Amino acid sequence: MAKRITFGVTYQKYGYVTVELPREIKTETEALEFIKDNWDKVPLPEYAEYIPGSDELDADDVVFENILM
């Protein structure tokens, strides 16, 4: 039987999102505050690129198979 390990990996991606602003938003500062206040409603980018070197092993989320510990 093969020895296997399954583990979590986190990494970052970078992409652009466009959001329609309410009419009452008049300044760049107000626009940024609106985005910050509504961050949980902002969609993830549809097209995003992996940020090289951003990957990390999640050593707390590991499953070992067929390995005597």
Rank of each mutant, 00 (worst) to 15 (best):
M1Y: 06
K3Q: 15
K3T: 15
R4L: 15
R4K: 15
R4A: 15
I5D: 00
T6D: 07
T6W: 06
T6P: 01
F7G: 04
F7Q: 05
F7S: 05
F7K: 07
G8E: 07
G8N: 07
V9D: 09
V9T: 14
T10R: 14
Y11C: 09
Q12V: 02
Q12K: 04
K13C: 09
K13G: 04
K13N: 06
Y14Q: 10
Y14H: 05
Y14N: 07
Y14M: 08
G15L: 06
Y16D: 09
Y16V: 09
Y16K: 10
Y16W: 06
V17M: 01
V17Q: 01
V17F: 01
T18R: 07
T18H: 04
T18M: 09
T18K: 12
T18Q: 08
V19T: 03
E20M: 10
L21M: 13
P22M: 10
P22S: 09
P22Y: 06
R23W: 04
R23I: 06
R23A: 11
E24N: 11
E24D: 11
I25A: 03
I25E: 04
I25C: 06
I25M: 05
K26Y: 00
K26M: 01
K26I: 01
K26R: 06
T27N: 00
T27Q: 04
E28V: 15
E28C: 03
T29M: 07
E30P: 01
A31P: 02
A31S: 10
L32Y: 09
L32Q: 11
L32V: 07
L32E: 13
E33M: 00
E33Q: 05
F34A: 08
F34P: 02
I35F: 08
I35N: 01
K36R: 11
W39V: 12
W39E: 13
W39A: 13
D40M: 12
K41E: 09
K41W: 03
K41R: 12
V42M: 08
V42Q: 02
V42F: 02
P43D: 05
P43Q: 03
P45S: 07
P45D: 06
E46N: 11
E46S: 09
E46T: 09
E46A: 11
E46P: 04
Y47M: 08
Y47A: 10
A48F: 05
A48Y: 05
E49Y: 10
E49V: 07
E49Q: 07
E49P: 00
E49I: 05
Y50T: 03
Y50I: 01
I51Y: 00
I51T: 02
P52I: 03
G53I: 06
G53Y: 06
S54M: 01
S54N: 04
D55A: 14
D55N: 13
D55I: 03
D55E: 15
E56Q: 13
E56N: 14
L57A: 11
L57P: 03
L57K: 11
D58V: 15
D58I: 15
D58C: 14
D58W: 11
A59F: 14
A59C: 12
A59T: 15
D60K: 13
V62Q: 03
V62I: 15
V62S: 03
V63W: 01
F64M: 10
F64D: 00
F64L: 14
F64G: 01
E65R: 10
E65A: 08
N66E: 13
N66K: 11
N66H: 12
I67K: 05
I67A: 02
I67L: 12
I67P: 00
L68A: 06
L68Y: 12
L68I: 14
L68S: 11
